[in-house]
């Protein structure tokens, strides 16, 4: 059985039909890139997967658990789904170390020493071990995003959702974040990314999902799909971004 399963998911914002029956199933260890124009529903889709947004019809199952946007359910989900945001959303009043230690201490009820060990490990992994006692605002955007990744990893999620995580970064800082993601992919974590990084999608991704007007318009192997798009909409989109 797949790790993430979406079945005929419909989502409305008032009268606006954002997601029009999404079917998608993702296996453990896959790296999925969701691409598409802004307004195509790709971020909304991602936010439905971890319950940040409610959906009105259909079903989403993650790791055997039905996803709803109820608070209790979202918290259980947080144990298997991590999320990284475009603008990092680090906690500015806490040090880098405290940011990473917070959820293991409070949610997983680990001891301080244990949580600190996890935090140091995770920061090591993203190459920021020496920033443990710094505050987020003393870090560059790329470093902040890597801290956010470490913070999510500290909960040892099975799936990591990445919502345009390099879009707010200066071009020269994008590489360091993608490199961390690549390492994670090699280690076998499941990644679902909403992204504009076509090279990353092609080189690291297992599958590309092209969304258009709230539907999965085309999906498949990135090397095939990105070089040989079947629909006019994808051709047009790739023409605009490549």
């Amino acid at each position: 059985m797949s790790l993430v399963d979406l079945h005929q998911v419909h989502k409305y914002y008032g009268d606006f039909h954002v997601l029009k029956g999404i079917d998608l199933s993702i296996n453990a260890g896959e790296v999925i890139s969701i691409i598409g124009k802004s307004g195509s529903g790709k971020s909304t889709l991602l936010r439905c997967i971890n319950g940040l947004e409610a959906y009105q019809k259909g079903g989403i199952v993650v790791d055997g658990n039905e996803v709803t946007s109820e608070d209790v359910q979202v918290r259980r989900l947080a144990l298997s789904v991590g999320m990284i945001f475009q603008n990092f959303n680090l906690f500015p009043h806490k040090t880098v170390g405290e940011n990473v230690m917070l959820a293991p201490t409070i949610v997983l009820k680990k001891s301080k020493a244990e949580a600190e060990k996890i935090a140091r490990n995770m920061l090591e992994k993203v190459g920021l071990a020496e920033k443990f006692d710094n505050y987020p605002d003393t870090l560059s955007g790329g470093q902040q995003q890597r801290v956010a990744i470490a913070r999510a990893l500290a909960m040892s999620p099975k799936v990591l959702l990445c919502d345009e995580i390099t879009s707010a970064l200066d071009p020269e800082l994008v590489g360091e974040v993608l490199k961390v993601l690549e390492t994670l992919a090699e280690e076998g974590i499941t990644l679902i990314l909403v992204t504009h990084e076509m090279n990353f999608a092609r080189e690291v991704g297992n599958r590309v999902v092209f969304m258009h007007q709230g539907k999965v318009w085309e999906e498949g192997d990135p090397k095939v799909l990105l070089t040989n798009p079947q629909t006019d909409e994808l051709k047009q989109f790739l023409g605009a971004v490549l």
Binding site: V74, A78, V107
Partner: peptide, 21 residues
């Protein structure tokens, strides 16, 4: 920022925990 609530929620913090920490 709303992101502070969302990030907390995604890490599994409840309402009161988010408020407090």
């Amino acid at each position: 920022p709303k992101g502070q609530w969302e990030a907390s929620r995604c890490l599994g913090l409840g309402f009161l925990q988010t408020l407090r920490h």
